[in-house]
Amino acid sequence: MTLIDIDKVRYRRHLNHVFIGSGVALAVLSLSLSQLLIFLFPDDSGSHFHWNALGVVIAAAIVGFCLSHYRHHTYLREVLYVWELKRALNKITRKMRKVEAAAQQGNEQAMQTLQFSYAGSRQLWQLDDNIIIMEELAIKQAELDALAERYKITLDAERYQEHFLTEF
C-alpha cells in the first residue's frame, strides 16, 4: 500500500456524509421494510419482533451492498483509503513484536515495515486529530532511524509490501 496525502477537511466531510447517509438509510429502510412485512404477513398475536428484526437485517444488507458497490466512487476515495490504511496497520500491529525483534537483528523488511507503520499511524492520527501519542511515535521513529543508520539501511515507507509480513 502506498501512502498518499489526502485533504483532511474533505476526508472528514465525506466520512461524516457516509456515516449520516448510512444511518439515515438504515433507519428508513428498516422501518419501511418492517412495516411492509407486517402489512403483508400480519400476526394475530400482535408480536412482530421477527418481522422487525428481518427488516433491520435486510436494510443492513442493502446498505452494506450499496457501500460495497460504490466504494471505488471518487466521492469515497479518501474514506476507502483510510479504511485500507487502518486494515494494513492492523495487520502490522498483530505481528509487531516479531517485526520489532527482527528489526533489532538488522532485517531490512522489518525496518521498512516499521517505517510504514509509523508513517501511516502519524497520518491517521493527524487526520483524526489524535495527537496525544505523537511524542511516543517520535521516540520510536528516532530509535528506528538510529537502527537503520547502524545497519546502513535507507528507510522509505513506499518500499513496504504486505507480503513482508509473511516472514514474521
Rank of each mutant, 00 (worst) to 15 (best):
residue 29 L to S: 07
residue 30 S to P: 09
residue 32 S to T: 15
residue 32 S to P: 13
residue 34 S to I: 11
residue 34 S to K: 06
residue 34 S to W: 05
residue 34 S to M: 05
residue 34 S to N: 08
residue 35 Q to G: 14
residue 36 L to R: 04
residue 37 L to Q: 06
residue 38 I to A: 06
residue 41 F to D: 14
residue 41 F to I: 12
residue 43 D to Y: 00
residue 43 D to E: 11
residue 44 D to I: 08
residue 45 S to V: 05
residue 45 S to I: 03
residue 45 S to M: 04
residue 46 G to C: 11
residue 47 S to A: 04
residue 47 S to E: 05
residue 49 F to I: 14
residue 50 H to A: 11
residue 51 W to A: 15
residue 51 W to K: 10
residue 51 W to I: 12
residue 52 N to C: 12
residue 52 N to A: 13
residue 53 A to W: 06
residue 57 V to C: 12
residue 58 I to L: 13
residue 59 A to Y: 09
residue 60 A to L: 13
residue 60 A to H: 11
residue 61 A to S: 12
residue 61 A to G: 15
residue 62 I to A: 07
residue 62 I to L: 12
residue 63 V to G: 13
residue 65 F to V: 09
residue 65 F to C: 03
residue 67 L to G: 10
residue 69 H to P: 10
residue 69 H to G: 06
residue 70 Y to P: 07
residue 71 R to G: 12
residue 73 H to E: 07
residue 73 H to P: 00
residue 75 Y to C: 00
residue 76 L to A: 13
residue 77 R to W: 11
residue 77 R to T: 12
residue 78 E to W: 02
residue 79 V to G: 00
residue 79 V to M: 05
residue 79 V to K: 02
residue 79 V to T: 10
residue 80 L to G: 05
residue 81 Y to T: 15
residue 82 V to H: 01
residue 83 W to N: 13
residue 83 W to V: 13
residue 85 L to K: 00
residue 85 L to N: 02
residue 86 K to S: 10
residue 87 R to K: 13
residue 88 A to N: 14
residue 89 L to D: 13
residue 90 N to R: 04
residue 90 N to T: 12
residue 91 K to T: 07
residue 91 K to P: 02
residue 92 I to H: 00
residue 92 I to F: 00
residue 92 I to G: 03
residue 93 T to E: 07
residue 93 T to I: 01
residue 93 T to Q: 01
residue 94 R to I: 02
residue 94 R to A: 10
residue 96 M to K: 05
residue 97 R to D: 15
residue 97 R to Y: 08
residue 97 R to A: 12
residue 97 R to P: 09
residue 98 K to L: 08
residue 98 K to N: 09
residue 99 V to H: 00
residue 99 V to G: 04
residue 100 E to C: 03
residue 100 E to T: 14
residue 102 A to N: 10
residue 102 A to Y: 04
residue 105 Q to I: 05
residue 105 Q to Y: 03
residue 105 Q to G: 04
residue 105 Q to S: 13
residue 105 Q to K: 05
residue 106 G to F: 09
residue 107 N to H: 08
residue 107 N to W: 02
residue 109 Q to E: 12
residue 110 A to C: 03
residue 110 A to M: 03
residue 112 Q to K: 05
residue 112 Q to M: 09
residue 115 Q to Y: 02
residue 116 F to A: 04
residue 117 S to M: 12
residue 120 G to K: 02
residue 121 S to I: 03
residue 121 S to D: 08
residue 121 S to K: 03
residue 121 S to Y: 04
residue 122 R to I: 10
residue 123 Q to V: 01
residue 124 L to Y: 05
residue 124 L to C: 08
residue 125 W to I: 01
residue 126 Q to G: 06
residue 127 L to I: 07
residue 127 L to V: 08
residue 128 D to M: 11
residue 128 D to A: 10
residue 128 D to G: 04
residue 129 D to Y: 07
residue 130 N to D: 11
residue 133 I to K: 04
residue 133 I to L: 11
residue 134 M to T: 07
residue 134 M to A: 10
residue 135 E to S: 03
residue 136 E to Y: 00
residue 137 L to V: 06
residue 139 I to N: 09
residue 139 I to M: 07
residue 139 I to R: 05
residue 141 Q to N: 10
residue 141 Q to F: 02
residue 143 E to M: 04
residue 144 L to A: 01
residue 144 L to K: 00
residue 145 D to N: 15
residue 147 L to H: 00
residue 147 L to I: 06
residue 148 A to T: 14
residue 148 A to D: 10
residue 148 A to I: 13
residue 149 E to G: 13
residue 149 E to S: 08
residue 149 E to T: 13
residue 150 R to L: 02
residue 150 R to M: 10
residue 151 Y to P: 15
residue 152 K to N: 15
residue 152 K to D: 14
residue 153 I to W: 03
